Amino acid sequence: METSATPHVAQPVDVGETISGEEIHGLIPSASGYVGPERRASRRVPRTLEISVQPMDLQMKESGRSFFAITRDISQGGLAFLSSQKSDFEKAVVSLNEGIAPGIVCRICHSSMIHSSGPEEVWLTNVEYLHLYRPRK
């Protein structure tokens, strides 16, 4: 059986305009054309939440400035988020911006640029949950 998938082409976004949630979804390639085996142990649920990402160094101490991101989807084992910053570190604490839930230490699995328009970049990062964050004193 032969299937043909239409390649996803991101549309340019004016740097000065506000991007809606629908436009952000338009930047992300659809998985509907994928016909291979399921690689995930648990189903990913599309969910948009505001989060903070705090990079950690190899000694598991906060390293650099935290930054804002928006989740793309969430599963039992991890999540994917969109941000304007590349996640070029190994671990981070991911925290909800609203609520009292504790931060979760995560391993950065993959970070790739999915859109660029001049100085504006959008990065998609996948993380795996490791454990709840307990700050060292």
Rank of each mutant, 00 (worst) to 15 (best):
I74G: 09
R65T: 04
K86H: 03
R107A: 00
I51S: 05
H110T: 05
S75D: 01
M56F: 06
I114R: 04
M113N: 10
M113R: 14
E62K: 15
R43T: 05
R39D: 08
S87T: 08
I74W: 12
K86W: 00
E121W: 03
S83I: 02
S84Y: 03
L96P: 05
M60H: 12
A80I: 00
S84A: 06
E90Q: 11
S95C: 13
P55F: 15
M56P: 00
S63D: 12
R39S: 14
K91I: 01
S117R: 03
R107E: 00
G118I: 07
L96V: 06
P102C: 15
D73F: 08
G78Q: 01
K91A: 06
F81E: 01
G77W: 01
M56H: 03
Q59R: 15
G99E: 10
L49W: 10
L82V: 03
M60Y: 13
S84L: 06
W123H: 12
S83G: 09
E98R: 14
N97L: 13
P37S: 10
G99I: 07
A41W: 04
A69G: 04
R40W: 04
S66P: 07
D57H: 11
S87R: 07
R39H: 11
F81S: 02
V35G: 12
I51V: 10
G99N: 08
V53C: 13
C109V: 05
G118Q: 04
R44K: 09
L96Y: 05
S42K: 11
Q85Y: 04
E90W: 00
K61N: 12
S112C: 07
P46M: 10
V35Q: 15
F68V: 12
S87W: 03
G64F: 13
R40A: 02
R40L: 04
P37G: 08
S116N: 11
M60N: 09
V93T: 04
A80N: 02
I114F: 05
S75Y: 07
R44Y: 06
A101M: 14
S75V: 03
D57G: 09
E62P: 14
R40V: 02
Q54G: 08
C109G: 01
R72Y: 04
L79I: 03
K61E: 11
R40I: 01
R44V: 09
A41D: 05
L79S: 05
M113P: 02
R43G: 02
P37N: 11
Q54C: 11
E62Y: 15
Q85N: 04
I100N: 05
I100H: 07
D57S: 13
D73N: 13
R40P: 01
E120Y: 14
Y34V: 05
C109D: 02
C106Q: 11
S87I: 12
S95R: 15
H110P: 00
E62N: 14
P37A: 09
R72C: 06
V93A: 06
Q85R: 10
F81A: 01
S66W: 12
V122Y: 06
S42E: 09
V94F: 07
F67T: 00
Q59K: 15
S63V: 09
L79R: 05
I108H: 00
S112N: 12
I100V: 04
S42P: 04
A41E: 07
R47Y: 08
H110I: 02
E121L: 07
S75N: 02
I104F: 09
R65D: 05
A69W: 07
N97M: 11
E121Q: 13
K86S: 05
S83A: 13
A92K: 08
F68L: 15
H115T: 10
S84M: 11
